[in-house]
Computed example of a mutant assay.
Amino acid sequence: MEKEKLQSFCMTLPGTTHDYQVDWQADRYHVGGKMFAMLGGDSEGKPIITLKCEPNRSEELRETYKSIIPGYYMNKTHWNSVYIDSNLPFDLLENLILHSYNLVFEKLTKKAQKQIIAK
C-alpha cells in the first residue's frame, strides 16, 4: 500500500486538514480540529497509519489481521495502527480511514458539522 494513496484518500474527506508533527515525524489528518489519522512509523521506523476505531471492532480487527495492532503511542482501546507494507486490501484500509473519520466527525458539535458539510 502506498503512503501517497492513503494521504490522497484522507484529503478527499470533507473538511480534512493536514499538518506534520516534527517531533513524531508523522503526517496528521484532522476534521474539525480533531485528529482521525496519523501516518508515521513505529519504533523500528516501519510505516504505519494510526486510526480511531470503535473498541469492539478494534479487537475483532486485531484478532483477524496480524498487521493491525493496538494504536502506537495512542489510547489502545480507541486506536489501531496498521502496517502500511502489509498485504491488506486497499479498500479495507479506505473503509478503516472512513470509519475513523466518521467517529471523529460525529463527536463534533452540530454547528461544526454543518459548517464542514456546507463547504
Rank of each mutant, 00 (worst) to 15 (best):
105 F>V: 04
42 D>Y: 02
110 K>E: 11
2 E>A: 10
69 I>V: 15
73 Y>G: 00
23 D>M: 12
61 L>V: 03
95 N>G: 10
104 V>N: 00
28 R>S: 14
62 R>W: 07
100 S>G: 06
15 G>A: 08
116 I>F: 08
18 H>Q: 15
39 L>M: 15
110 K>A: 14
33 G>V: 07
90 F>Q: 12
60 E>C: 10
103 L>A: 02
42 D>N: 14
105 F>H: 04
51 L>M: 05
13 L>V: 09
119 K>H: 11
50 T>M: 08
106 E>F: 01
15 G>V: 07
104 V>P: 02
114 K>I: 06
33 G>K: 05
61 L>F: 06
81 S>A: 12
117 I>G: 01
6 L>W: 00
85 D>W: 06
19 D>A: 08
108 L>T: 11
92 L>Y: 03
107 K>Q: 15
14 P>R: 08
70 P>R: 03
44 E>D: 14
28 R>L: 12
107 K>D: 07
76 K>L: 10
106 E>V: 00
59 E>Q: 14
16 T>R: 02
39 L>Y: 09
14 P>G: 04
52 K>T: 04
94 E>S: 09
87 N>F: 03
41 G>V: 05
58 S>A: 15
113 Q>D: 05
91 D>W: 00
84 I>T: 04
119 K>E: 13
78 H>G: 05
30 H>I: 01
21 Q>F: 12
35 M>F: 04
98 L>Y: 09
42 D>F: 02
21 Q>P: 00
85 D>R: 11
71 G>T: 07
85 D>A: 09
118 A>C: 01
56 N>T: 10
32 G>T: 02
109 T>K: 05
55 P>Q: 11
103 L>T: 02
41 G>Y: 04
9 F>R: 09
26 A>H: 05
35 M>C: 07
11 M>H: 00
62 R>A: 07
116 I>K: 13
102 N>V: 10
4 E>F: 00
68 I>M: 02
44 E>V: 06
110 K>N: 08
119 K>R: 12
44 E>H: 12
109 T>R: 03
111 K>I: 08
18 H>E: 15
1 M>I: 11
102 N>T: 13
96 L>Q: 06
27 D>P: 04
39 L>A: 13
67 S>I: 01
90 F>A: 06
56 N>W: 06
17 T>R: 12
6 L>A: 01
40 G>A: 04
51 L>E: 03
20 Y>T: 08
49 I>D: 07
5 K>R: 12
45 G>A: 06
115 Q>V: 11
89 P>G: 06
100 S>R: 10
12 T>W: 00
95 N>R: 07
61 L>R: 07
82 V>P: 08
63 E>N: 14
7 Q>S: 13
29 Y>G: 11
77 T>D: 12
